[in-house]
């Protein structure tokens, strides 16, 4: 039997990328870089919410899901910070100003920036995990009066692997956001904290009953941070994490990004701990 007519909406395939152009390439760390993109001729700018991601296509090599790491209020300026870990991200790292790439998106559920209004907000990031959280920080600071205490806890591998270092220094200079940075290893010249990011938690003040937490980093880090927070009395529903799995389509068709019953692409990447906590203890899920 032929299918119902309402299923025959737009004719273009959601798998087809749009063309964007690299406006600026900036090296962040030895293996991490930032691409500033503008829409190609005739392409509309991307409107996105903090925590969403795009599929970036490097000509002839393939696509990779990359979170958006710019300021959502700056429409027309699309920023992705990318770590070179495979063929596609390495190819993206060879792009320079004026080069074109393919882009699909934005996809995924955002950080609960709106729902956090009235609460203390803890942003906890590890390594490259600061990149997907940066749009949320921009949003919080843009309407700072709507939130209680705001703290950013960031863990990196070493002092030279601290992402957005200048920006962290600028934020730290503000009186309305507490910024704590720690590294896993350092030479004695480093005057900051040494130790994993969980060791920063006891140092910040927040009201566990009225706190929204947003965490992004390696899964093992998020697991430990979430458990420490629960021990401090934060409700599982208030702890939000950004998850990562293999992803080919970003629109729920390819099946690769399943995490238990969830599709990371359409149900995530941001989840509250309550909805996925049961899966966290299961290996190879």
């Amino acid at each position: 039997m032929a299918i119902r007519s309402e299923a025959t909406g737009s004719l273009s395939d959601p798998m087809t990328p749009r063309i964007f152009v690299v406006e600026r390439f900036r090296r962040e760390l030895h293996d991490t870089f930032t691409l500033e993109l503008t829409p190609g001729p005739g392409m509309a700018p991307i409107v996105y919410r903090p925590g969403q991601f795009n599929m970036l296509y490097a000509m002839g090599v393939g696509e990779a899901p990359i979170s958006i790491s710019g300021d959502p209020a700056q429409t027309g300026q699309l920023i992705h910070t990318i770590r070179s870990v495979g063929a596609v991200t390495e190819a993206l790292g060879r792009l320079r100003s004026g080069d074109a790439l393919g882009l699909r998106g934005p996809y995924g559920r955002p950080w609960p920036v709106e729902a956090a209004a009235g609460n203390d907000v803890l942003i906890i990031a590890g390594g490259i995990g600061l990149a997907p959280l940066r749009p949320a920080i921009y949003c919080l600071l843009a309407e700072r009066h709507r939130y209680g205490r705001v703290a950013l806890l960031y863990g990196a591998r070493s002092p030279r692997e601290i992402l957005y270092r200048r920006q962290l220094e600028r934020w730290r200079a503000r009186f309305d956001i507490e910024v704590e940075v720690t590294v896993d290893r350092a030479a004695p010249e480093w005057r900051g904290s040494v130790g994993v990011v969980t060791t920063l938690l006891p140092r910040v003040q927040f009201d566990p009953d009225h706190t929204t937490v947003m965490i992004c980093g390696p899964e093992v880090m998020m697991r430990h941070v979430a458990r420490d927070l629960i021990q401090r009395g934060v409700a599982e529903e208030q702890i939000h994490l950004s998850m990562e799995r293999n992803m080919k389509c970003a629109i729920g068709f390819c099946g690769h990004c399943q995490y238990g019953p969830k599709f990371i692409c359409r149900d995530g990447p941001v989840f509250d701990f309550h909805s996925i906590g049961g899966l966290f203890g299961v290996r190879e899920i």
Partner: peptide, 16 residues
Amino acid sequence: LEATRLQLLDIYGHQV
């Protein structure tokens, strides 16, 4: 000790 174990994992390296 827990924190040290996490530190040992070198979680921000390429191989997690």
